[in-house]
Structure formats: structure tokens, C-alpha cells
Computed example of a mutant assay.
Amino acid sequence: MCCSGFLKMMMFIFNGTIFLAGAAILGVGIWVKVDSNSLMGILDSVEELPSEVSQVANIAYLLIAVGAVLLVIGFLGCCGAIRESRCMLLLFFSIVLIIFLIEVAGAVVLLVFKDVAQDLFDSLETEVQKSLRAKFGKDESLTSLWNTTMEGFQCCGYKNYTDFNNSPFYVQNNGFYPSYCCNGTDVGGMCSGEAAEASAELGLVDGCFNKLLQLIEDNAVIVAAVALGIAALEIAAMVVSMVLYKQIGNKA
């Protein structure tokens, strides 16, 4: 009885943590989906995207799906332990095992993607530049999206200020660039070519692509630690659920 009670408590702890993690992931997924001003929204404005890169835009749906499933398995684990239901415990174990295998497969895919990411973003650069030079300053939604991105990341263009060359904004403003391309030297909300070049050469203003890479690199350790923690909890939860499953079977 003492051992059984301890295992039930462990199930509550494990599944409570998984439930909260699922709620957090679900919340992030919903936020990414509804935040039309996020950097991910830029992908939707670029024509002729490489098929591999276009799939990144679907990450919000993946996060929502994973979060929802984690909520369900957290609920099944708690109810299965409380009611001592072998069916619910077995269902819980099966779903957690499937999720764990998907996570392992996803980790392998990410490792592979890391090796080809530079090539993919290099091919994306041409399409983004084409989009900027054709629509920035003319397409209101794209212009607003890029302005929000450049302001938030303190960056200029995809790679640098030259991405805006010959764009509608550039032509309408007699060769001036957006103010984000300068480092405190903008004139009337715009940036001269000399100031933009100087800011870029001195490393005072970086491209948004480099800023995004830096953000990912800065948080890579945190993401990896969280992923390993969740994986460890899932393995522990599977072990405990099977022990309870066996004990309930012996009682019957």
C-alpha cells in the first residue's frame, strides 16, 4: 500500500509537470499563430519559397498539437492513477511512448536541418530581397511587418541595408533607407546611404537574419535543457505507469 501510494504521488508529480508543459507549449503555439507581426510572418509575404523553408511557417500548428496532446496525456495519467484504471494507464503509456519517439525523430531531423540550414537561408535570401525591392514602401502589410521586425530586433533588411536598393521606399525617398539602417544618425525618420553603409561596416546595425541566428544560438542551451528535462519526465512517467499497471493487475 505504501509503495502504491508513493507511485500514485509520483504519477501526480510527473503528469502535473507534463500538463503544465503542455499548457505552456500550447500557449506559445497560439501566440505564434495569432502574432501576425512576428518574424515568422515574413515567410508568408515571400513568393517562391523553397519548400523546406516554407514548412517552418507551420511550426505554430506543431506547437499547438504537441501542447494539446501533452494536456491529454497529463489528464489520462492522473485519472488512471486515481481510478486505478489499467485501460487509462495503458493508453497513457502508449501515447507518451509515441510522443517520445516523435521527439527523438524530431531531434534527428533538427540535427540534419542544422547542416543544411545555411544553404536553405542563402536560397531564401534571393527571394526576400526580390520581395523587398518590389514591395517595401508600396505594400502596406509587408512594409509594416518589416518595420515591426526591424524595430524589435534592432536590425536592417534580411542581410543589410542594400536589400532595400531600388525598392519603392528607396525611390520615393530619393535614395534614403529606413531609419533602422542607421545607428542614431537618421534624418527625418530616414537613413542616408553613407550613414547606412557606415553603420553596417562598423557592425553597429546587423541584418535581421543574423540577429535571428544569434537569438537562436543564445537560447540553444535553454531549449536543449528543457527538451532533455521533458524527455526524462516522460521516461519516468512511462516506467511508473507500467509498474502501477502491473500492481493493479495483480490485485485483480
Results as ranks from 00 to 15, higher is better:
residue 1 M to E: 00
residue 2 C to A: 10
residue 3 C to H: 11
residue 5 G to V: 05
residue 7 L to N: 03
residue 8 K to S: 04
residue 9 M to F: 09
residue 11 M to Q: 04
residue 15 N to T: 06
residue 16 G to H: 07
residue 19 F to T: 05
residue 19 F to E: 00
residue 26 L to P: 03
residue 28 V to Y: 02
residue 30 I to T: 10
residue 37 N to F: 07
residue 38 S to V: 00
residue 40 M to A: 10
residue 40 M to T: 09
residue 49 L to F: 08
residue 49 L to P: 07
residue 50 P to K: 13
residue 51 S to H: 12
residue 52 E to K: 15
residue 54 S to E: 08
residue 54 S to L: 07
residue 55 Q to L: 11
residue 57 A to Q: 07
residue 57 A to T: 05
residue 58 N to A: 13
residue 60 A to F: 13
residue 64 I to P: 07
residue 67 G to S: 11
residue 68 A to I: 08
residue 75 F to L: 06
residue 76 L to D: 00
residue 78 C to Q: 03
residue 79 C to F: 08
residue 81 A to C: 10
residue 81 A to E: 00
residue 85 S to I: 01
residue 86 R to H: 07
residue 87 C to H: 03
residue 87 C to W: 05
residue 88 M to T: 00
residue 93 F to N: 03
residue 94 S to V: 05
residue 96 V to S: 08
residue 102 I to V: 12
residue 103 E to I: 02
residue 104 V to E: 03
residue 104 V to P: 01
residue 106 G to W: 02
residue 113 F to Y: 10
residue 114 K to L: 09
residue 117 A to K: 07
residue 119 D to T: 08
residue 119 D to S: 10
residue 121 F to S: 02
residue 121 F to C: 01
residue 122 D to E: 00
residue 124 L to P: 06
residue 124 L to F: 02
residue 130 K to V: 10
residue 130 K to L: 12
residue 131 S to A: 15
residue 133 R to V: 00
residue 134 A to Q: 13
residue 135 K to N: 12
residue 136 F to L: 15
residue 140 E to P: 07
residue 144 S to H: 13
residue 144 S to N: 14
residue 147 N to K: 12
residue 147 N to Y: 09
residue 148 T to V: 03
residue 148 T to L: 07
residue 149 T to N: 10
residue 150 M to I: 00
residue 152 G to Q: 09
residue 153 F to W: 13
residue 153 F to A: 13
residue 155 C to K: 03
residue 161 Y to I: 06
residue 162 T to V: 04
residue 164 F to Q: 07
residue 165 N to E: 12
residue 166 N to C: 11
residue 167 S to Q: 07
residue 167 S to A: 05
residue 167 S to M: 05
residue 169 F to M: 09
residue 171 V to Y: 08
residue 171 V to D: 05
residue 172 Q to S: 14
residue 175 G to R: 06
residue 176 F to T: 15
residue 180 Y to H: 11
residue 180 Y to T: 15
residue 183 N to E: 01
residue 186 D to L: 04
residue 186 D to E: 12
residue 187 V to A: 14
residue 187 V to Q: 15
residue 188 G to N: 10
residue 188 G to Q: 06
residue 190 M to L: 11
residue 192 S to P: 04
residue 194 E to M: 13
residue 195 A to S: 14
residue 196 A to L: 07
residue 197 E to H: 13
residue 200 A to P: 06
residue 205 V to F: 01
residue 209 F to H: 09
residue 212 L to V: 09
residue 212 L to E: 01
residue 213 L to I: 11
residue 215 L to M: 12
residue 218 D to N: 13
residue 219 N to R: 15
residue 221 V to T: 11
residue 221 V to W: 00
residue 222 I to G: 01
residue 222 I to L: 15
residue 224 A to N: 11
residue 224 A to D: 06
residue 224 A to T: 15
residue 224 A to F: 12
residue 225 A to N: 06
residue 226 V to H: 10
residue 227 A to S: 10
residue 228 L to Q: 04
residue 228 L to C: 14
residue 232 A to N: 01
residue 232 A to G: 09
residue 234 E to G: 10
residue 235 I to A: 12
residue 236 A to N: 04
residue 236 A to D: 00
residue 237 A to L: 06
residue 238 M to N: 04
residue 241 S to L: 01
residue 241 S to R: 10
residue 242 M to L: 14
residue 245 Y to P: 00
residue 246 K to C: 12
residue 246 K to V: 01
residue 251 K to I: 06
residue 252 A to S: 02
